[in-house]
Amino acid sequence: MIWKSAEQCGLCLGDLAVAALIDEVKLTPKPGLVDLQSPGSHTDMHAGLMIASADSLRSSFEAMGSTAYGREPNQELRETLACIGRTGEQSMLLTTGGINTHRGAIWALGLLIAGAAICGSGEAPEQIAEAAGTLARFPDRTAPISTSNGIMAMQKYGVKGARGEAMNGFPHVVQVGLPVLRDSRRSNMSENHARLQALLAIMANLDDTCIIHRGGMETLLVVQQGTQKVLELGGASSIAGWEALERLNKDLVLRHVSPGGSADLLAATLFLDRLSILS
């Protein structure tokens, strides 16, 4: 598909981003995360709320795509996109009654939408992610002082967090999530199992600040090792892997931790995958 205008680009990318978020929510079962069966480790979220939150971001995602269409990554564009992102965040909070459902996803998908609009249709995921990374490396001089959970985890434990992931060109998306998703499909896994496999691969490798904030580095290590065990047992498509996945989910719920950063990067993976199929 070739975008003939900024508006067409924005509409297309907005649709793909919202669809990716809804696909992530509907993926079931997910350890510690909201899905169609369970709220996971959350007491204030459910699948319907997450889907409504995703829909509330459509106009902001569209605006990001149309604004970045045909542009070069620069300071002005970075700050314009940040402003649109903060508007999207307010729409999300109004929809959810103040619950932070998708703040991290706004950051990741917003940058990747802009990267796709800059590169044009048909570009490879790696180039889109690199363009997004170039944008992320420009500072947002208009940003309010942040005290988010992710920022606090980054400062306390020295991990890179969502900002570092973006600035480095989303390595857990293009080097982990996408290859595992596509390899799993080629091995004849169902689409649901392939997506779960991609999520588990991201979880096993990512220093997820959502986990670190609630449980520290010790809990992160437990989650990563538990996830790696699921993969070693064959992942979601094997009986032993499925049983290990259920045990992992129970452990995360008991620990009150949720791999929200991994979920955001799975959504980013599904977005780039959908875009490459469309192109």
Rank of each mutant, 00 (worst) to 15 (best):
I239P: 08
D208C: 13
L57K: 12
A153D: 02
G120M: 06
T67R: 15
I202Y: 01
A47K: 06
S5D: 11
I22P: 12
V257Y: 03
I106K: 05
I106W: 00
I99K: 11
E126R: 09
Q37G: 12
P29L: 05
A166G: 11
L272N: 02
R195H: 05
G235S: 02
L196T: 02
I118T: 03
V222G: 01
E232H: 10
G226T: 04
I239V: 13
Q175P: 10
E232M: 12
M92A: 06
M189N: 15
W242I: 03
A19F: 11
M189P: 12
P259N: 07
T95S: 14
G40L: 03
T28A: 08
D44W: 04
C210Y: 00
L252C: 09
R185I: 12
S38R: 07
L199F: 04
A68F: 09
W3P: 06
S237T: 09
I211P: 03
G14I: 06
D208P: 10
L206S: 02
V34R: 00
N149M: 14
G235Q: 08
R137W: 07
C9D: 02
T209C: 08
L49N: 01
I2N: 15
Q228F: 02
M154I: 13
F138Y: 12
T209N: 09
R103T: 02
R141F: 11
G70C: 04
C210H: 03
R86D: 09
C210L: 11
L233I: 00
E243N: 09
V257T: 04
E24Q: 11
G161E: 01
L112A: 03
L245T: 00
I99Q: 09
S59E: 12
R78S: 08
A136E: 10
V222K: 11
G115A: 12
E7D: 13
N100P: 08
L265P: 06
V176C: 07
C83L: 14
V180N: 02
F271Y: 13
I239E: 15
L196Y: 00
I2V: 14
M167C: 13
A166R: 10
H213R: 15
S121D: 14
R58C: 08
I212F: 01
D273V: 06
K250H: 14
V34Y: 07
E89Q: 13
R103Q: 06
S38L: 04
R137S: 14
R214I: 04
A117F: 01
G216S: 05
L181R: 01
L135H: 07
T87R: 14
I202S: 04
H102L: 06
D183I: 11
R71N: 12
L33T: 03
E123A: 15
P179D: 14
G216Y: 06
G164C: 10
K30R: 06
M167P: 01
G215K: 05
F61A: 05
Q8M: 10
C83Y: 11
A204P: 08
I84R: 06
V174A: 01
S237I: 01
T95R: 07
S276F: 11
K30A: 02
H172W: 05
R182A: 10
L248T: 00
L245I: 00
I2T: 15
C83N: 13
T227R: 00
P259F: 03
G70W: 10
L272F: 06
R214A: 12
D264I: 10
S66F: 07
G177P: 13
N149S: 14
L278Y: 11
G122P: 08
S91I: 02
L221R: 13
A194N: 03
D273I: 09
C210T: 12
M189I: 07
A114G: 13
E165K: 13
